[in-house]
Structures are given as structure tokens and as C-alpha cells.
């Protein structure tokens, strides 16, 4: 694999059949990369309990997605999971850690704190308002804290992004994949209308005599 890298990619592309060859190589490399993400343990506060411990433990089992080899050294890791509040004093350390990681490197920001400062956004003297102020972030996972399932969704998104959006022809460049599309013939407005109708129909602020009816109500899916 060492023979085919970003330096000699243009050379290979010039040969007949070169582009097709490179695309095949890309697929293999991206498949390998996306299925063996090694996260760096960087838990700075409460999100770490959910994302590092609950997600890694037997019940949810991070190992199913090939990302369970958490390393304590940035030199051996290629995925930085920001789990927790980032304070101003931690900022330089975070940037150093990110710089020390080997290319290609990916960043997932989990939890409101790493996205925007979360509960500490106002009247805080110390909290950085979002990790993107310090380092580039690839995937964000909202929640306070996100459930392990949400984190897995973020991880799968990242894997999809690696598989679809990278090429050794353009190292470091990433394309965000399309994750969800509405079924044909359905618009956002229709969904909104239906939500409002549902809310009005099943709201708990109904008159008391209607509560009896609601007891037997089952959710239509």
C-alpha cells in the first residue's frame, strides 16, 4: 500500500486505467479506515460517562463498530471524541493533542458543551463556546449527554463520511454525505402539519372528561 499514496496518485492517474484503479484502491483504503477507528480518550466531564463508559461497556458495546480500541496516546489514535465541557485552560492542550494525532484524523463532538458551550454558554468565565472554535469538527452528536445510541449514530455517520467522501487523490478533503432524504411526494410542511394535528389531538391539556378516553389510546405509528 505504501507505493500508492497521495504523492504519486497523479502519476498513476495518467496511465490508461489509472483512475479506475485509484477508485478501487480508495474503496479498499476507506473501508479499512472506517472500520478501525481508534478513539483517543478525551473525556473532560459528564458526557464521558455516557460516551466513553456506557458506550464501551457490554450493554451497548462499541466493539461492534470497530472503534473500541481507545488509546491514551494521540500518536496511536485517529478519532478524537470530545466528550465534555472544554474550558479555556484546556484549549491549548486540546489543540496540541489534535496536532499530535496522525493523519487522517477525525473529530466527533458529543454533547451540548462541545457543540456550543451548552448549559454554560451564558455568564461563564471559562467555557469555550464550542470545540469548532479550536479545532475542525467532522460530526456533532447533540444531547446532554447523548445516549450511546446517538453516539453510535454519529460514529456510523463518520464511517459513512469516510467511505463516501475521501480519496487519496485529495487527502484531507472530505465531503459530507447525504444522510436522510424524505420519501418522494412528502414535504416538510406536511410533516409539520401532521405533527401539529397529532399534538392537538393527543395533548394532555384537554378537558378532564376527555382524559378517560385517552387512557385507552394507543399511539398510531
Amino acid at each position: 500500500m505504501g507505493l500508492i499514496n497521495s504523492q504519486n496518485a497523479p502519476m498513476i492517474e495518467a496511465f490508461p486505467g489509472g483512475p479506475a484503479f485509484l477508485t478501487t484502491i480508495d474503496t479498499v483504503i476507506n473501508w479499512a479506515r472506517s472500520n478501525s477507528l481508534w478513539p483517543l480518550t478525551f473525556g473532560t466531564s459528564c458526557c464521558a460517562i455516557e460516551v466513553m463508559m456506557a458506550a464501551g461497556a457490554a450493554n451497548h458495546d462499541l466493539a461492534r463498530f470497530g472503534a473500541e480500541v481507545a488509546r491514551a496516546s494521540p500518536r496511536q489514535a485517529d478519532l478524537l471524541v470530545l466528550a465534555g465541557t472544554i474550558v479555556k485552560r484546556m484549549g491549548p492542550t486540546l489543540q496540541t493533542l489534535y496536532a499530535q494525532m496522525a493523519e487522517p484524523k477525525y473529530v466527533i463532538a458529543t454533547g451540548a458543551c462541545a457543540i456550543s458551550g451548552g448549559p454554560f454558554i451564558y455568564q461563564s468565565y471559562s467555557t469555550v463556546r464550542g470545540a469548532h472554535e479550536l479545532i475542525p469538527v467532522d460530526v456533532i452528536v447533540p444531547g446532554c449527554p447523548p445516549r450511546p445510541e446517538a453516539f453510535f449514530y454519529g460514529l456510523l455517520t463518520l464511517q459513512k463520511m469516510i467511505r463516501e467522501g475521501e480519496s487519496i487523490r485529495r487527502p484531507g478533503e472530505r465531503r459530507k454525505p447525504v444522510l436522510a432524504a424524505l420519501p418522494p411526494g412528502i414535504t416538510i410542511d406536511q410533516i409539520r402539519q401532521e405533527l401539529i394535528l397529532n399534538l392537538e389531538e393527543k395533548s394532555v391539556t384537554k378537558p378532564l372528561n376527555e382524559h378517560a378516553k385517552m387512557e385507552n389510546l394507543t399511539w398510531k405509528i
Partner: peptide, 9 residues
Amino acid sequence: YVDDFMLER
């Protein structure tokens, strides 16, 4: 306490 970094609600 207030400083320049703090955001008011």
C-alpha cells in the same frame, strides 16, 4: 464578577 469573555443571558 464580570469580564469581556462572558455572555449575558
